[in-house]
Design a protein around this nucleic acid. Structure first.
Lengths: 192, 192
DNA sequence: CCATTTTTAGCACCTGGTACTAAAATAAGT
DNA sequence: ACTTATTTTAGTACCAGGTGCTAAAAATGG
């Protein structure tokens, strides 16, 4: 209904802007918004090379889905509360609903692992450190809402190898115990 | 085509798991994968209260997939491409930038672990399964953009304990090898 | 006033479904 | 073995949100 600058070009600009701001609009929606026929919108879309709604949503979904699987954007899973480089560290992870199985509200193992692993890696006094081998036991299930406190200690250090022990607790109950063998990578190796 | 435990219930479990690992599958895709008719898949979906593809994608695109999900029984890290309940499974994870260390663009270990762990858990023929102990080796760094193919096999099954071996490869190079001891939890235990 | 551009209309067809009915196949009970 | 119940498959009508096409109507320009 709002045909401000009646003209093909400016309308197509509007179509493009509406759709980039809201890919959920159908041609019918746009036709109503811009006060033109559905066919006109279709023509505009084809000229602008904008795909139909379903395809747009599929693209958006593919993008979102990739990120949705990210455990965390941050370097560290959990909140770092103490760090003595090369010696020990503590981090806290509060279990939220999206870390749990829906039925049971028990945290998926890989979140606890991620907390422990990222803490162990953070401990290593090197620009880059990669996990080599790990041995982890999950001692008891952790439920939604619980605060997991992970404590990590460097047990041995031989050259560029760090042996890190991590124990995670909830209210002083051990929920995870693990050994992480981590390799610190020299700067020359990764910076080419 | 792989109808491991021919039965309505286990098939529906598979449907749920396939869709939670890959919401982009159409009913036709699923019918082909599971070797049943499209109508059967439709029935399964309605009984499981899983909406049609377009709606699923719309939800993913809207970003509410995490909250309003009726189907993520065993939210997989990676895309499920094959699953023989209680026997073996394959999933693929494409490493994106947010899974890597910024300097080196090497995947953080816990993403590879998460893929392997969630696949191992999905394999277990039970509503709920929890990881007990794990031993994982990271054989070589995985870089941003690489496709990690995880293959899992149930090695032994004693009562409710599953011993699962997972090997992840990139272009036929092993990048991860792991053993996962997983406990299937009886329904009576978690449903009170 | 005529030519060209732009807009609209109409039609057949498509995917990926829903909702329903009904037949066929399979499993279970006795 | 026979019957009942469950499960699976088939088929129909219908839907949204389109594509791709032809063609007419309306607006615009010189």
């Amino acid at each position: 209904m709002a045909r401000s600058h009646t003209g093909k070009l400016s309308r197509q600009q509007l179509v493009a802007r509406y759709l980039s701001g809201n890919p959920f609009l159908t041609d019918e929606d746009l036709a109503a918004i811009l006060g033109v026929s559905v066919q006109t919108i279709r023509l505009d879309r084809t000229e602008l090379h904008i795909p139909e709604k379903r395809e747009r949503l599929e693209q958006v979904a593919r993008g979102v889905y990739g990120q949705l699987r990210a455990l965390s954007e941050a370097d560290l899973v959990g909140e770092l509360v103490e760090l003595n480089m090369g010696r020990s560290g503590v981090s806290i992870l509060t279990i939220t609903e999206d870390m749990t199985f829906r039925h049971t509200r028990v945290a998926r193992g890989h979140y606890l692992f991620a907390q422990a692993n990222s803490l162990a890696v953070a401990l290593c006094d090197a620009e880059v450190a990669l996990t080599g081998t790990t041995k982890v036991s999950f001692r008891r299930p952790v439920f939604c809402g619980e605060k997991v406190v992970a404590r990590a200690f460097v047990r041995r250090k031989k050259g560029n190898k760090y042996m890190v022990r991590v124990a995670s607790r909830v209210n002083n109950e051990t929920v995870l115990e693990g050994k992480f063998l981590i390799f610190a990578i020299a700067e020359e190796v990764w910076r080419q």
